[in-house]
């Protein structure tokens, strides 16, 4: 289980990375933590001609508060978020989720940006950052642009990123003091990818974003469920049946068919995330 041959270059900064991409012959690919790409290379599921390593670009490792947002460099590692060493826009949601994302040895290398670009609907950051309404800042050969995360994730393992483009940073609005959240990951063992993953963020009265992972090709912002959560004050157990109905509405609006078994599981994780956010 060894990769096909490739060439390798480490980029000093973003401009250098783009230049390396521009001059590469054949398929070039960026690598950050390598915690997703590494297995794919070893399994020969990915066979690029050249890897451009973003791991030595200091600017990507930065995290800072800017007004009412926190801006994370794409190279920030899961472990740094877990350890609470960085500004936290999420009132504890991101560190808690990070601690159950893969395993420590993987969190020491894997990055926020790599996770968003890989765009696995079962992964933590694509879902949680969608609930937090994050924006990604991109740099490409043609210049810079920014995209709301909801518009960035186009399909299963597919994003709006052009091959040359790099996620430079991710900016996340800081939750207000009254904001609440609930998060539930259903997985078969700690560190495994989720089988169902739900996060509910209550930004303020009537303003709720509830996101469900694993049900569709991309993380789903559940409109009917969010509206339901925005309309109730506090948690009541009998809301569960309404949640299941609202979830069905959202899924069929998204054109997603799930069987009764998955529906039951997704409804349970959604309800639990909502309960924690509202209780």
């Amino acid at each position: 289980m060894k990769p096909a041959p490739f060439d390798y270059a480490a980029a000093r900064d973003l401009d250098h990375a783009l230049a390396l991409f521009g001059e590469a012959e054949g398929e070039a690919k960026y690598i950050a933590g390598g915690q997703t790409l590494g297995p794919m290379l070893n399994l020969r599921l990915s066979q690029p001609d050249r890897l451009i390593d973003l791991g030595r670009i200091d600017a990507l490792r930065d995290a800072r508060s800017e007004g009412d947002r926190v801006v994370f460099g794409a190279g920030v590692r899961h472990a740094e978020i877990e350890d609470g060493l960085l500004p936290d826009p999420s009132g504890g949601l991101m560190p808690q989720a990070a601690a159950r994302l893969a395993y420590r040895a993987i969190r020491n290398r894997g990055t926020l940006g790599g996770s968003l670009v890989h765009a696995d609907p079962a992964a933590e950051w694509p879902n949680i950052l969608l609930a937090l309404d994050a924006t990604v800042h991109l740099r490409g050969l043609a210049g810079a642009r920014e995209v709301r995360l909801g518009d960035f994730q186009l399909g299963y393992l597919t994003t709006d990123l052009a091959p040359d483009e790099i996620v430079a940073s991710i900016s996340i609005p800081v939750l207000g003091p009254t904001a609440r959240w609930g998060y539930h990951k259903l997985c078969r063992q700690p560190g495994e990818f989720a089988q169902s993953l739900a996060v509910t963020v209550v930004f303020g009265p009537g303003r709720v974003r509830c996101v469900l992972g694993c049900a569709g090709p991309v993380p789903l912002l559940l409109k009917a469920v969010s509206a339901l959560a925005g309309g109730v004050s506090g948690w009541r157990d009998d809301v569960r049946t309404e949640i299941a109905a609202a979830l069905e509405t959202d899924l069929s609006a998204a054109g997603i068919a799930v069987d009764a078994v998955d529906l039951r599981a997704h409804a349970a994780t959604v309800a639990r995330s909502m309960k924690d956010a509202l209780a």
Partner: peptide
């Protein structure tokens, strides 16, 4: 212990 909501 079985979780009847998730089957865990």
């Amino acid at each position: 212990a079985v979780d009847p909501g998730t089957g865990t």
